[in-house]
């Protein structure tokens, strides 16, 4: 790992002002992606502003039909929250399937979505449930937040502070994990929301997480695993790597969508 300068932020304003004064600094959440990336020398931030210790970002609250999760909440915290389990069980189950227990003890929701790994689980959770990403400056709908592979609508120095999830009428998540990394080879979140059926797919798209219009239409007409059969996914939009071809992933999208409905 290249040299870096570590700073532990005490508040959101402390973190953003500290980062603004650095040459090429980055916010550090639980570090479960950033630290390995730095160890491989694929990233070399001049400064790390650790936001994982900011108490105000560690709360989970439910008000009316909205579940708000602070950016520094760990996956273990979300997976183990009785409030989340009651309000949006699919979200608790999604969090419980990320990585392994030790990774879940450190990794945070804010870090996951700010990184927008094309195979991460939370982007599908946010997009599928129609969440709103809260930053230090504004609120961004998930539909606008996830721009492309490892790319988000966040401005330079802008920091995720929370994610607001509307309760869904029904929602389910299913993923086919890579057996070694536990990242999604294909993960699908399907939800019946106040604004209709939403289906988000992670792990498969060659431009990161995406909504699947054909599956939304099919499930909007008939909410059942059967309805996902025969809905095709364009192979040209799929990732292909040593773990699975585009054709394989396109097929898995339909299978996982069916399982997501069964899990709802």
């Amino acid at each position: 790992m290249y040299d870096t300068t570590y700073y532990r932020a005490s508040s959101v304003s402390d973190a953003t002002s500290k980062l603004a004064g650095t040459e090429d600094g980055k916010f550090l959440g639980g570090g479960q992606t950033l630290i390995p990336t730095m160890k491989q020398r694929l990233a070399a931030p001049s400064d790390l502003v650790d936001v994982s210790g900011i108490d105000a970002l560690k709360n989970i609250s439910v008000e009316g039909d909205t579940v708000t999760i602070g950016a520094a909440c760990t996956h273990a915290q979300v997976a183990g929250s009785s409030e989340v389990a009651e309000a949006i069980p699919a979200l608790a189950s999604l969090a419980n399937g990320i990585g392994d227990p030790a990774v879940r003890a450190r990794g945070t929701i804010g870090g996951s979505i700010a990184n927008n790994d094309p195979a991460a689980d939370y982007p599908a959770g946010c997009l599928g449930l129609g969440a709103t990403i809260v930053t230090d400056a504004r609120e961004i709908p998930a539909d606008e937040f996830f721009v492309g592979m490892f790319e988000t609508a966040l401005d330079e120095g802008e920091m995720v502070t929370a994610v607001k999830f509307p309760k869904a009428t029904k929602a389910g998540y299913a993923k086919f994990p890579n057996p070694a990394s536990r990242y999604a080879m294909v993960g699908v979140l399907a939800a019946q929301t106040a604004n209709g059926v939403r289906v988000a797919v992670t792990g498969a798209g060659n431009d990161g997480v995406f909504r699947h219009a054909a599956l939304e239409e099919a499930l909007g007409a008939n909410w059942s695993a059967d309805a996902t059969q025969g809905v095709s996914t364009d192979e040209g939009d799929m990732l292909a790597d040593i773990h699975g071809s585009a054709e394989y992933r396109a097929h898995l999208v339909g299978v996982m969508a069916g399982r997501a409905v069964d899990n709802s």
């Binding site: 570590y6 532990r8 550090l28 570090g31 479960q32 630290i35 390995p36 790390l48 650790d50 994982s52 273990a76 227990p101 030790a102 990774v103 003890a105 450190r106």
Partner: peptide, 14 residues
């Protein structure tokens, strides 16, 4: 909590 100590900075354990 069990964590992977190869994936955490010592400074973060202050």
């Amino acid at each position: 909590q069990a964590v992977k100590s190869c994936t955490m900075l010592a400074a973060a354990a202050e």
